[in-house]
Simulated scan of single mutants.
Amino acid sequence: MAESAAPAGMWTPGQARGLLAIGAHRYLLALLVRKELRVRYQASVLGLAWSYVKPGVQFLVFYFVMGSFLGLSRAISPFAVYLFSGMIAINLATEILGNATRSIVYNAPLVNKIFLPRQLFPVSSVFVALVHFAPQVVILVLGALASGWLPDLVGLAAFVVGVVIVLALSLGLGLLFAAVNVAYRDIENVVDLVLMVAVWFSPVLYAWTFVRDALVHHPWLVQLYLANPLTAAVELFHRAFWWGAATETDRVSGVVDHLWAHAGLALALSALALVVGDRVFRRLSRTFAQEL
Rank of each mutant, 00 (worst) to 15 (best):
R102Y: 01
F127T: 08
Y106R: 11
V123M: 10
K113R: 13
V154D: 10
L153N: 06
L142E: 12
N99F: 02
I96M: 05
A108Y: 06
F121N: 04
N107H: 10
A108R: 11
A100I: 01
A108M: 12
W149H: 13
V111M: 07
N112T: 15
V128A: 13
D152E: 08
L145G: 02
L97G: 12
N112Y: 03
T101A: 07
L153R: 07
G98S: 14
S103F: 02
K113W: 02
Y106T: 14
I114M: 10
L116M: 15
F115N: 14
V126R: 11
V137Q: 03
A146M: 13
L130M: 08
K113N: 12
L140F: 10
I104M: 06
V128P: 11
G98C: 10
G98E: 10
F115V: 14
A134D: 00
I139A: 15
W149L: 14
N107A: 11
V111C: 08
I104Y: 01
L120R: 03
L142W: 15
W149D: 06
L150S: 12
L145Q: 03
G143M: 15
V111D: 02
V137N: 02
V141K: 03
I96S: 00
Y106G: 14
T101N: 06
I139Q: 13
P151R: 04
V111N: 06
A100R: 00
D152S: 02
H132L: 13
L140Q: 07
V111R: 04
L120T: 12
S125R: 05
G98D: 10
F115G: 11
G148S: 08
Q136V: 15
P117S: 01
V154C: 05
L120I: 11
F121D: 08
L120K: 04
S103M: 01
V123P: 10
A134R: 01
V138L: 15
V154M: 09
R118M: 04
G98W: 00
V141F: 06
F127H: 02
N99C: 09
L130S: 13
A144F: 09
P109H: 05
A129I: 01
Y106A: 14
G98H: 07
A129M: 10
L142H: 12
S147M: 03
A108N: 10
G98Y: 02
G143R: 09
V137S: 01
A100P: 04
A108K: 11
S103C: 06
R102A: 13
L120F: 06
F121E: 06
H132C: 14
L97W: 12
V123F: 08
R118Q: 05
T101F: 03
A146D: 05
I104N: 00
I139N: 12
Q136G: 15
L97S: 07
L116T: 15
F115S: 13
P117C: 00
L116D: 09
V154T: 14
F133D: 00
S124Q: 10
R102G: 03
K113Y: 05
F121Q: 01
V128Y: 01
L153F: 09
V138S: 07
V126P: 15
D152R: 03
Y106Q: 13
Y106E: 12
A146Y: 09
